[in-house]
């Protein structure tokens, strides 16, 4: 009998927390997120041709990587590397900053995986995304 009460309490605690926080919002209107968003958007303009051509693909962990640089002139490949490194730096900072701004730095990993799914889900037709260890074209 007491065991049942224990379980009931457990379920209650569970449902309580679910009920309390399911409606919780994620705060993204902070100066940090805004600054990162602007920086990501500005750099996206430079990266977009490479994403369209398939030189750059979206990774399963919410970042970008070189997929096939053959179509990029040699002299531009180093700059492309730099662009990707900078964009990934900002993306990592974005995941961290959203977690921090919402008072839960430990959420960084979960936020990253949500973003990873959404970036891939919303990738434009023609872009390449990582899926199950291989590359798939949207």
């Amino acid at each position: 009998m007491k065991r049942w009460i224990g379980m009931l309490l457990g379920v209650l605690a569970l449902s309580f927390s679910a009920a309390t926080f399911a409606a919780a919002d994620i705060e993204i209107n902070t100066p940090g997120v805004t600054a990162l968003k602007q920086s990501l958007r500005a750099r996206f303009q430079d990266l977009r041709p490479y994403m369209d051509s398939g030189a750059v693909g979206l990774t399963a962990d919410g970042l970008l990587t070189v997929r096939d640089a053959s179509s990029v002139p040699l002299a531009a490949r180093q700059a492309l590397n730099g662009l990707i490194a900078a964009q990934n730096g900002d993306r990592n900072a974005l995941y961290k900053e959203i977690a921090r701004a919402n008072g839960h730095p430990e959420w960084e990993g979960e936020i990253r995986s949500i973003f990873a799914q959404r970036w891939i889900q919303r990738a434009r037709p023609g872009w390449w995304v990582q899926s199950g260890g291989g590359w798939v074209q949207k």
Binding site: L14, S17, A18, F21, A22, A23, A24, D25, I26, I98, H104, W107, E110, I111, I114, Q117, R118
Partner: peptide, 9 residues
């Protein structure tokens, strides 16, 4: 469960 996945999405 605490992590608001829908809101994060």
């Amino acid at each position: 469960i605490y992590f608001p996945a829908a809101a994060a999405e």
